[in-house]
């Protein structure tokens, strides 16, 4: 279903429909995350991906009032398609060495994850392990994340706020 939505996104002509379909795509992603036991990520994806990104896209479309030139019919382009297919084939060849889906002995589950699962309840407190990792063990990541959001916010204000002053 995700694949179908993605293809539809490639084929769609109307930018407005593409923006709405992005929201649907994010919601499908969120349900996929629930299926893979990542409830926290699914929450965030549903709120942020389906909510904020769709609103931002619609806001941009409202600001630029879709110029008529963007309606030109799309034709399949050979060179990008060839590059994409070759890269995809190489990547699929590389997956032969990857651990199988859901393998409990995959390398990803051997390093610090077991310690988080065993000790985070006693060391940090909250029953949700993701919260413990986010706020305590990897607190610096979250600090960096806040910095990135702050920088992006400042950037958006500098790009758009300046213009409003000019116009008034």
């Amino acid at each position: 279903m995700l694949a179908v939505t993605a293809i539809a996104l490639v084929r769609l002509h109307s930018l407005f429909a593409a923006a709405m379909l992005t929201g649907i795509y994010s919601l499908l992603c969120a349900s996929l995350f629930v299926l893979m036991d990542a409830v926290d990520v699914a929450f965030t994806e549903a709120a942020v991906g389906a909510g904020i990104i769709t609103i931002m896209l619609l806001g941009t479309l409202a600001l630029i009032r879709e110029s008529p030139d963007s309606k030109e019919p799309h034709r399949l382009q050979i060179l990008p398609m060839a590059v994409v297919v070759i890269t995809g084939a190489a990547l699929i060849y590389a997956t032969r060495d990857m651990p199988a889906f859901g393998d409990p002995y995959a390398p990803a589950h051997q390093h610090v994850a077991p310690r988080y699962i065993e000790k985070s309840g006693a060391e940090v407190g909250p029953p949700n392990i993701v919260t413990s990792v986010l706020a305590s063990y990897r607190g610096y990541d979250t600090l960096g994340e806040v910095t990135v959001i702050f920088t992006a916010g400042v950037g958006v204000i500098m790009l758009l706020g300046h213009r409003r002053k000019d116009r008034s």
Binding site: D40, E45, I53, A108, Y116, V130, S132, E145, G155
Partner: peptide
């Protein structure tokens, strides 16, 4: 399930929104 990728991707989603806004 392994909680570490979940925490990493939570951060990544939010950073993604920030870059998208920019």
């Amino acid at each position: 399930a392994n909680p570490l990728p979940h925490a990493l991707i939570l951060t990544a989603i939010v950073v993604g929104v920030a870059t998208m806004a920019l």
